[in-house]
Design a protein around this nucleic acid. Structure first.
Lengths: 213, 213
DNA sequence: TAGATTGTTAATCGATTAACAATC
DNA sequence: TAGATTGTTAATCGATTAACAATC
């Protein structure tokens, strides 16, 4: 799985969900076109940067009108691959894992939740929002057979690297990592760290500065 | 609450939790010192960048030895304000909100969970992990009286801005935002967007590129 | 037509890296 | 002492912004 020669720069990828979020909201209004200046207002990015970002993917704008909201939204969906089905599993059915079962964001992004795994005998067999919690022993086989793309990792810290190795062995393409552990993965496996407590770190850091001043 | 003239650049703040994560792990080993070269190996940042980041806060290193792991960890705690108590509430006791009640990351970062609020009469009065879910009508008064610093926002999309306005009115210092809504907050209120589905966006985007190639 | 706004180039700004003197 | 590694400066790299011709 070599990297595409035309890989979208990370710095742009980072901003795509922001455009997506705002266009999704705008799509509900009666507004048809939006200018880079208005988008700048909403996103906090400069209009220049927005035009540059979008022009990376093609000429979506219409001079003197701006960008067609509906079309741009569709384009973003294609760019981010939301029109493509990606198979997801959740590994670890603790409190966070269970909350992820109820997450409503999968469908519009092309994700299909396929299974939930845990090691705890008290959880195995339970149904949460119509998903049966499966024994983690079945995971490797399942991922291989069903060609799962992404695993949400919500296991305890001690198990994180071991389970990760298993997922890699099974041929997982990406890990959506909620553990706090510095995981090691080979280059061809995508690792998206969703360490929620980092948000608390940043907030604490900034509050602290305000106090000191 | 004016910005400090010596505000830590965001680009450094972003990397502090990464150093924290690795030092926390290293602290458990018998290793006493770590060089910027070894830290580079672990974090993926260049050794040069690490030395520059750390030197921003002082001279923590010891020439020809590296950085004392324990001391550096302590320094990071002070820099990020973890030695300071910050009062937290959770607003919205749905699946995600409840999962956040069980989050183990508060204490070591100096956070104290003070209360959980919801609007749903079926949830109000329930105890989750020894926290009673309180009526959201009491929130404004509570935040004012208890001088709450941070609110974790896990309410439905439709309620997000309204509740945010209420929190601002009550004098909240920062919002840890789990909604998917583009929230508007005044400049002096910190907004940390913890939109977990953004992780799914990035993963989808990158997987899509690998496929196309 | 006049005004608005894109797409793109060149200029600027800021972040990262390379290099090395200082020194333990 | 010789080797290791910091802290810092200068050089480089890359990202953002300003500006503007093109054009709807």
């Amino acid at each position: 799985m070599e990297k595409n020669s035309e890989t979208i720069p990370d710095i742009i990828v980072k901003r795509l969900p922001v455009y997506f979020k705002h266009l999704k909201k705008l799509k509900k209004s009666t507004k048809e076109y939006i200018s880079s200046y208005e988008l700048a207002e909403l996103t906090g990015f400069s209009s220049s940067l927005i035009r540059k970002d979008l022009s990376y993917f093609g000429n979506f704008g219409r001079k003197s009108y701006g960008y067609d909201i509906y079309c741009l939204f569709q384009e973003l969906n294609i760019i981010m691959g939301f029109n493509y089905t990606k198979k997801l599993i959740i590994v670890g059915a603790g409190h966070l894992g269970q909350a992820l079962i109820y997450n409503k964001g999968y469908q519009e992004r092309g994700y299909e939740l396929k299974a939930v795994f845990d090691k705890n005998p008290k959880l195995i067999g339970l149904y949460i929002n119509e998903f049966e919690i499966l024994n983690i022993e079945q995971m490797l086989k399942f991922v291989k057979k069903e060609e799962i793309d992404i695993a949400a990792l919500t296991v305890p810290q001690g198990a994180a690297q071991k389970i990760t190795n298993l997922l890699i062995e099974a041929g997982i393409k990406g890990i959506w990592d909620f553990t706090e552990v510095p995981l090691k993965v080979p280059e061809d496996v995508l690792l998206e760290e969703q360490h929620i407590n980092e948000g608390l770190c940043k907030l604490s850091c900034k509050i602290n500065q305000n106090i000191e001043e």
